[in-house]
Amino acid sequence: MKDVARHAGVSVSTVSYVLNDSGPVAPARKARVLDAVRVLDYAPNEAARGLKRRSAPTIGLVVPELSNQFFALLVEGVEQTVSASGGLVVLCAPEATGAEESVNGRLLRSQRINGIVYLSGAMTSPRSLLELTRLGPVVLVDEQVPGFDLPAIVSDNRRGAREVAAHVIGFGHRRLAIIAGPKNLWSTQQRLSGYREAIASIGIEPDSVPTHWGDYHQKSGWDGAEKFLSGPPADRPTALLCANDLMAVGALEYCRSRDISVPTDVSVVGFDDLPFVSLLTPRLTTVRQPARDMGQQAASLLSDLIEDTAGPESPDPLPTTLQVRNSVVAPSD
């Protein structure tokens, strides 16, 4: 602004009045300021302006990784909402960068953030999360973290899992297997509860259904499918309930490598409805989570908490939707 003022031959306050439309400026002076802005290619420092006016918050966004399209969609939702209000997003992806969570905590402190949207990963450190809560309000999204009474934006994982399992059971499948997520995650337990409710409703003991504990990554889907499908056909499950789409893709890859036909030999379902799964062969039956909406609501709730216009209560879970495609058919035997 000093450079603009010097070039235009006016005071810094005059430049501020013109750029912020916050005071009277004679037309000739305004024209000189705008011409200087154009010549110098000046762009306001929104972070500094926000800190001064306290009107454009800087949001920290902690996300495990961006290679998972579900997380990327959540990030888009957060960014859309924050940028629409003139705010800034500082993105930290611990698992993607290999940096320890404490490193990201120091980064966020250095940015003088106003609050944090936190997407929990499988390796969440309670100490690191506690450190982040000292920086300002924290809103969890997609997961709840035991031991932390923090507002969270989540989807109805339990209902979604119950519906997709009931869909599979409705085709007559009784030999089922589950490829679950990490044991310590809230979403894993919610989806597992949903599967078990559907299984119990037809008189099968849920604990009798074999379960492979994965990690929400593609390789663990392959490992689970190998565990369940490498034996004689008569001993194999006729359907795999995969707790997310990436693990379902891993299971499909294993089946393709072993000439096991999906869905003729084994039906496969996922969870999330990532954009590409409707293009697979077969097209994957799954559960849609409203990822962008979750990100948008998390950012909006955090904004309200920063402005002290919202209570600490979590809103109701967002609804999920069963996406029926062609990866499920009746068992062949």
Rank of each mutant, 00 (worst) to 15 (best):
252 L>C: 09
226 E>R: 13
226 E>M: 12
43 A>E: 13
297 Q>H: 14
54 R>E: 11
333 D>M: 07
150 L>R: 05
247 M>F: 07
187 S>V: 11
244 N>Y: 06
319 P>T: 09
282 P>H: 01
13 S>N: 13
282 P>L: 05
302 L>W: 12
286 T>E: 12
2 K>V: 14
78 V>D: 00
7 H>K: 15
197 E>H: 04
286 T>G: 14
23 G>M: 01
207 D>K: 14
148 F>W: 08
228 F>Y: 01
304 D>G: 14
141 V>G: 07
17 Y>T: 02
286 T>F: 12
238 T>S: 15
29 R>D: 12
236 R>H: 08
79 E>I: 05
195 Y>I: 07
187 S>E: 03
246 L>I: 10
289 Q>G: 03
152 A>C: 03
53 R>A: 15
318 L>P: 02
295 G>N: 10
125 S>F: 07
56 A>K: 14
148 F>D: 08
8 A>Y: 11
285 T>N: 02
183 K>T: 14
194 G>C: 03
34 L>Q: 13
186 W>M: 12
278 S>C: 14
41 D>S: 12
40 L>E: 04
143 E>F: 02
153 I>Q: 00
155 S>A: 14
206 P>S: 06
2 K>C: 09
259 D>Q: 14
171 F>L: 04
290 P>Y: 08
100 E>M: 15
6 R>S: 13
247 M>I: 10
70 F>Q: 04
254 Y>V: 01
26 A>P: 08
11 S>R: 05
267 S>P: 12
264 T>G: 10
97 T>H: 04
56 A>G: 12
274 L>H: 03
314 S>Y: 03
225 A>S: 06
102 S>Q: 12
112 R>Y: 04
15 V>F: 02
214 G>H: 04
190 Q>M: 14
39 V>Q: 13
151 P>G: 07
222 W>C: 10
296 Q>A: 15
146 P>T: 02
21 D>G: 09
166 A>R: 11
121 G>M: 05
314 S>D: 02
145 V>S: 02
178 I>M: 08
83 S>G: 00
302 L>I: 13
161 A>M: 04
107 L>I: 15
9 G>W: 03
168 V>H: 01
179 I>Q: 04
175 R>G: 09
68 N>T: 01
149 D>E: 15
17 Y>Q: 12
220 S>H: 03
318 L>Y: 06
42 Y>K: 08
203 G>S: 13
308 D>K: 14
